[in-house]
Design a binder for these strands. Structure first.
Lengths: 210, 210
DNA sequence: GGTTCTATTTATAATAA
DNA sequence: TTTATTATAAATAGAAC
């Protein structure tokens, strides 16, 4: 009925991961992706026998949640994560993706047990650090041999460090360009046979402008 | 080698959504899907300006979490009473279907102090171990006295590594953006008026588009 | 515990109800 | 605010490091 004759739809279009301005589209997307997220969580739980909890507040303020076995059970198990303030954890670290996650919950009851557990963990850390210190320059050596040593833990950076980090990246970007130029002018055979136009750069300096 | 010449891979195969028996495959799947889940949560948050928290315990007992702005903030908002530690009225919610409303199911028999203490202690240990793993070399590296760990030695990279390095940088750039967003949205101390739709970040993400 | 590489299976952006 | 339709963009099962 009146499909004009062209394709009935352009199909899924690629979108940038940034706040959707259009209120209507944003709402529809939230509804769809929320269901998708819950489905994924459910599958992860079933497939891997994991306990998973997901809680989401829409910008409108509505709550939606999924939990296996229940949101509360999972949250409760996670909550005691951080002890008091007597001895603050080394640093709030990241694990997921873009979001941060650090908690500060006090519970006078189990302070002793927690403190003991923490002591144990800290001792472990200290020992590890001491060991690394002893290794000395070997550390640098090992780092250089690491496959992806440049995968920085961005989330560990705070607001104060981010700007500096960005500037460092810019310098890095420039050096990459220069180095790419050098390699390009030197000319060398190409090992991997490209098949698609998707990625697989061929050492063209223009390919390194990110 | 022995690629015979046929397809290098059968590609993704359809699987049933039920516990994966093979321990190895289950672990790999957990790792992959956990990352996928966090990514989805991050995107939902960014695209729709939603607050999302995801907590997952692997069958091995390791914890993994993602939160926007933080797991704790979302959880607290989800279950305010729990934060006070005053009255237990936990909610096992499961919405996302029809109504588009919120549900609350109470569980009267769940405040066993002793048992909770044990749970907490175990979770504490598990969480610390997970954290240790995540921070990994980053910590020891920092302790080894390396202020500018991100100053990569580009010249050390060869033609074969450069493309990979560039892709890594692109991923890094994206993470920086997401982190900047996180910091921006986290800039607010505490939201007194829990009703709004527009945000007013003090940290402009556009400052980090290099 | 994680990552890389393909070939497929899924999730969805656009639209219209 | 959730759902049905398409045509594509993404996620990921398997296998191997």
């Amino acid at each position: 009925m009146v499909r004009s004759r062209g394709r009935p739809s352009l199909g899924r279009q690629r979108i940038e991961i940034r706040r959707i301005d259009n209120s209507g589209r944003r709402q529809v997307t939230f509804s769809k992706r929320r269901n998708g997220l819950f489905k994924k969580a459910s599958e992860l739980s079933t497939l891997c026998g994991a306990s998973v909890a997901v809680v989401a507040f829409s910008s409108a303020g509505n709550v939606f949640a999924f939990g296996q076995p229940t949101v509360d059970a999972v949250v409760r198990r996670f909550d005691p994560l951080h002890a008091d303030g007597a001895d603050p954890a080394p640093a709030a670290v990241e694990d997921g993706g873009g979001g941060g996650d650090d908690v500060v919950v006090a519970d006078p009851e189990e302070l002793d047990a927690l403190r003991r557990a923490e002591e144990q963990t800290k001792a472990q850390v200290a020992a590890e650090q001491a060991r690394m210190r002893d290794v000395g320059d070997k550390v640098t050596q090992a780092m250089a041999g690491r496959p992806l040593w440049w995968e920085a833990d961005v989330e560990a950076l705070g607001e104060a460090e981010l700007p500096e980090f960005v500037r460092a990246l810019e310098r890095l970007r420039d050096r990459v360009h220069r180095h790419a130029s050098t390699l390009a002018s030197t000319a060398t055979p190409l090992p991997p046979p490209p098949e698609q136009e998707e990625e697989v750069p061929e050492l063209d300096v223009s390919d390194y402008s990110f």
